[in-house]
């Protein structure tokens, strides 16, 4: 996928277009690769340190490609009370990554969200927009295993 259209859409040497540009690039590529940030720096005439500063400041920007499956762990109040920290730790240990990271095989990305809005089934996670509620550590391991098995079968 090419980002050429983004550079045609915006005026050059105009620092004010930085954030919309980064958003568009992420829309196309799913994340902001290093070389794109360098390209944006040249295009806007801003130092690349500034591009990097902006890209790392806002949570909406990701600097790593997204995994095939995106796991979001709800860390809202209800889920917290119901033990969502254990769920998160379990996922981190199983996947050997921290929240916000992607596994080396690019299979899973693990994220936390402030509240998914499904407190009645807390603790809850979503995987690829599918919701899993009333979770326990055991259930999470099972769900994860099923995803991994699917992968090996394919």
């Amino acid at each position: 996928m090419s980002t050429a259209s983004v550079y045609e859409k915006y005026p050059a040497q105009d620092p004010s277009v930085l954030i919309p540009m980064l958003q568009d690039i992420q829309e196309i590529l799913g994340y902001l690769p290093e070389d794109e940030m360098h390209k944006v720096a040249n295009f806007t005439r801003l130092p690349v340190s500034r591009i990097y500063g902006v890209a790392t400041f806002y949570n909406q920007f990701r600097l790593q490609p997204l995994g095939q499956h995106v796991i979001r762990v709800c860390r809202g109040t209800a889920c917290h009370v119901k033990g969502s920290l254990d769920i998160l730790t379990t996922l981190e240990n199983e996947l050997k990554i921290k929240a916000g990271e992607t596994t080396k095989d690019l299979l899973f990305t693990l994220e936390t969200v402030a509240c998914i809005g499904a407190c009645s089934i807390a603790p809850v996670i979503s995987i690829d927009n599918e919701y899993y509620g009333h979770l326990t550590v055991k259930k999470v391991q099972k769900i994860l295993a099923s995803f991994k098995n699917d992968q090996t079968e394919e």
Binding site: L46, P47, V48, S49, R50, Y52, G53, T56, F57
Partner: peptide, 13 residues
């Protein structure tokens, strides 16, 4: 950034 227009460093995160 503002005096030297180099921009080697910035605040990240």
């Amino acid at each position: 950034h503002e005096v030297q227009s180099v921009g080697a460093i910035d605040i990240a995160q």
